[in-house]
Design a binder for these strands. Structure first.
Lengths: 69, 69
DNA sequence: AAAAATAGTAACATATATTTTACATAATTA
DNA sequence: TAATTATGTAAAATATATGTTACTATTTTT
């Protein structure tokens, strides 16, 4: 579940803690999402996008594995 | 949690059942997501997007409520 | 180098997404 | 019109996202 949360967060100069508070979520949740071992909820993805001023595609889009139908 | 799953699904001529099978999820889950009373997982959102050949922004983007910071 | 701030992670608890089973209704087709 | 297919929904079970607490490690600042 690779994503661009970390780079996007740094671009708007927020710490994990600050982003978490802004969104109303735990710092640990942000950390886990950034590490990529997580499958966050759409609502949370959207809130992250709003906080970093980017779109879903910009932060969370992943190209489909090419060999599946 | 408004979205464009239903219209996107119909555009590629899939029933809820067919989409669900393609994605490996239950028909009920698709139904609930389409009805909008649901907060699906990013992974599931992506799988839906792949199945209907659209991006996250096209299917799931919601403009931020204008009065929040 | 020490102190403070930031980030990674783990165990357990809780909330909720998703499944399973089942039934009802609407829409389509024979 | 009857039969079939597609969809809405509900209750209970299960899986998993997220919270809580706590400790460690890394990075930044003094």
């Amino acid at each position: 579940m690779k994503n661009k949360v970390k780079i996007s967060r740094v671009q708007v100069d927020l710490t994990q803690q600050q982003l978490a508070e802004k969104i109303g979520v735990t710092r640990q949740t942000i950390s886990l999402i950034e590490k990529g071992n997580y499958n966050p909820t759409l609502k949370l993805c959207l809130e992250i996008c709003y906080a970093v001023h980017k779109s879903l595609d910009e932060v969370f889009w992943i190209e489909r594995e090419s060999d599946e139908q």
